[in-house]
Amino acid sequence: MDCGTCETSGPVQLMTPEVVDVNLSISNKAQEMLADAFGDDRSMALLVGVLSGGCSGYMYDLQIVEDTDQSCQEVTIDGFRVLVPNASSHLLDGIEIDYVDRLMGGGFRINNPNAESSCGCGESFS
């Protein structure tokens, strides 16, 4: 097999999506829950990312982080730092971070105007 390791095979042209200045909002209920999670320490940030996979192609990835090595844009909403990776900014512009208070299937939820469809669990979209 010639894997092109010794020669100059050109890489497949990767389409780098345009980086979008993300606008997002956080519902009142989600802000309450974030306040519980962060406490008084507002040095932490909510990282809202997208991973490939899931039933519909993309999966949301929510993490509370101090910092990240990903290239991100930072949005501050009512004192909460929100980090959005530039690589997935085109998928997250206009989202609302909500919190659903339910015994089953509850938790943080993303309402995404860019999503054509989403799977039953709400974690995956396309």
Partner: peptide, 8 residues
Amino acid sequence: VIPRILGQ
């Protein structure tokens, strides 16, 4: 595949 690489 390529649009799903994102930042990986």
